[in-house]
Design a protein around this nucleic acid. Structure first.
Lengths: 248, 248
DNA sequence: CGCCGCCACTTTGTATACAATAGCGTCTTT
DNA sequence: AAAGACGCTATTGTATACAAAGTGGCGGCG
C-alpha cells in the first residue's frame, strides 16, 4: 500500500537496515508499553542485542533522538525520553495546528481512490482492534493520520506529522490508561466521510475534537519509574527480527 | 540573549563542536547564496576542508539531512537539496499553519520582558540591514520568528519551526531575487506591537500576509545549475572558523 | 564505427581500535 | 567519623581501517 512516495518511509529510507531494525524495535516496544521512561540505552548493550556495531547503533539513536523518543546528553549517552504533562500539551497543540491544515487539504484534494485507501485502512484498524493486536492498532491509528496528510499532498506537513506521531505514541504508552476503544475508529470513519465529501469545515472540527478527546484521556498520574529499568529485559524480545515478527 | 532554553540551540546541542562547525558553514554559505543547488558534498572532501574525520562529517550531513538542506542517497552520498516550486509552496503552507499558532500563543502569553526582547531583536535586524550584512540579516529574520515561537512557549512548535526555517532560507537563497528590504523589518515591528497588545486576531492576519508576501517574492526562473559546482571553492572560505568570523 | 560488457577506481557503508570524559569508590586527612 | 580529593572503571566520542557498491573508462565484439 505504501510505496516509496510515502513520506514517513521516505524519511527512514536512508537508514541502514540494521539501524532501522533497532528503531523499529524501540517503536514496537513503545507500542506494547514496554518502555521504561528514562531507561538508559547503552550503545554497547544495543550493539550486542542487535548484533551490530556501535556505529550503526548511534545512527539509530540519532534518529530516535530526532523523533523525540530518546534524549541524548553529551558524554552521558541515550535514554528514553521522559515527557512531561506540559510537553504532551504542547505536542497535541502542535498536532491540532498541523492536522487542521492536512485535513483541510485532504478535503480539498480527496479523490475516489483516496477514499478507498482510507476505507481500506480503517478496515485494517478494525481487524487489529478485533484481534486485540495492540501494537498493530497503535501503529495503524497513527498511520491513518498520515494517510490523511498524504491525501492533502503537502510533503512538508506529512514529514512534520511523521516526526511527532511517535512522540504521541510514547506519551500515550506512558500515560494513556485506555488501550482499546472502537470509538476512535468510528471517528476515523466519520472523518473519512467528511473528507471525501469535501466538507473541510466539519472535518477540521471533528479532527480537533478527536485530538482533544485523545489528549484528555492522558493522565500523568502513573509512576513510570516503577517499570522495569533493565533495558536488555524489555528490549530483548524485540532484538531478533523473527521474534518481533512472530508476535505481530 | 539566547541561553540553553532556546529551542533551536537545544536541538543542536548534542552535536560535536566540529560537526556544528560544518553545519554552520553550510548554513552560512546558504545565507550568502553561495550554495550550488544539487552540488555534491563528498565526505572525504569535507573531512579535509574541516580537518576532521569522516565520522564527524557524517554526523553533520545527517543533521543537514534532517533539516532538509541536503539529500542523501544510499551509496551515492550527500548533495545540496534542489527544492522545487511545489516544495516551496508546501513549506510556506506549513509555516502558515505553524506560525498562526505560535503567534496566537505569543499574543496570549507575551510579557513586558518578552516585548523588550522582540524590540531588541528588531534593533539588531535594523543594524544588520543598515550594515548591509546579508548573512546576519537572513539569520536574524528567521530567528525573529523563533523568538515569537519561544514567547508562545510551545516547545514542540519551536522545534518544528527551527527545523523548517533553514529550508526556507535555502529556498530564498535559490529563488528570492530581493535580498535587502526594510519593509519586512517594519512588518516585524508591527507584529511585535500586535503581540504585545495581545491582539491575536490581527497578529495572525499580519503573520499570514507577511509569509504570503515572502512566498510571492519567490521566483523559480533562475537556472541554479549555472552556479559554481565546485564545492571546495564555495565552501572553502567557510571551512576555517577565523575566516567565517572575519566576514561576520 | 558503434555498442555492450568487463575491470579498475572512487566513494560510501560498517566495524573496530584508541582517546577523552564522567561517575564512583576508596583512601587519606582533619 | 566525616569530608574532600585522588584514581579507577565504565561509557561515550573520534579516528582509522577494511568491505561493499556504484561509476566511468577501456577494450573487445558485432
Amino acid at each position: 500500500m505504501f510505496d516509496t512516495a510515502f513520506p514517513a518511509e521516505n524519511a527512514r529510507s536512508h537508514l541502514a537496515p540494521a539501524a532501522l531494525r533497532i528503531v523499529d524495535a524501540v517503536l514496537d516496544a513503545l507500542s506494547d508499553r514496554n518502555l521504561p521512561a528514562g531507561g538508559k540505552l547503552g550503545e554497547e548493550l544495543l550493539a550486542r542485542l542487535f548484533e551490530t556495531s556501535r556505529t550503526t547503533v548511534r545512527q539509530a539513536l540519532q534518529h530516535l533522538r530526532f523523533l523525540g523518543i530518546v534524549d541524548i546528553e553529551p558524554n552521558r549517552g541515550a535514554s528514553i525520553a521522559r515527557p512531561t504533562a506540559r510537553m504532551a500539551a504542547d505536542l497535541y497543540a502542535a498536532r491540532r495546528a498541523i492536522e487542521a491544515q492536512t485535513v483541510a487539504d485532504a478535503a480539498r484534494y480527496c479523490t475516489a481512490n483516496d477514499m478507498r485507501t482510507m476505507l481500506a485502512h480503517i478496515e485494517r484498524q478494525d481487524a487489529a482492534a478485533t484481534a486485540k493486536n495492540r501494537r498493530e492498532l497503535v501503529r495503524l491509528r497513527g498511520e491513518f493520520h498520515l494517510v490523511i496528510a498524504e491525501i492533502g499532498g503537502n510533503a512538508v506537513l506529512c514529514h512534520l506529522l511523521s516526526q511527532i506521531l511517535p512522540r504521541c505514541a510514547l506519551i500515550r504508552a506512558l500515560a494513556d490508561p485506555q488501550p482499546f476503544t472502537k470509538r476512535q475508529i468510528d471517528e476515523h470513519r466519520t472523518l473519512a466521510q467528511l473528507i471525501a465529501r469535501g466538507d473541510a469545515k466539519k472535518a477540521i472540527a471533528l479532527m480537533q475534537s478527536h485530538l482533544q478527546i485523545n489528549e484528555r484521556q492522558l493522565g500523568f498520574s502513573g509512576d513510570d519509574q516503577a517499570r522495569v529499568n533493565n533495558v536488555d529485559v524489555w528490549l530483548g524480545a524485540y532484538a531478533r527480527p523473527q521474534a518481533a515478527k512472530r508476535q505481530a
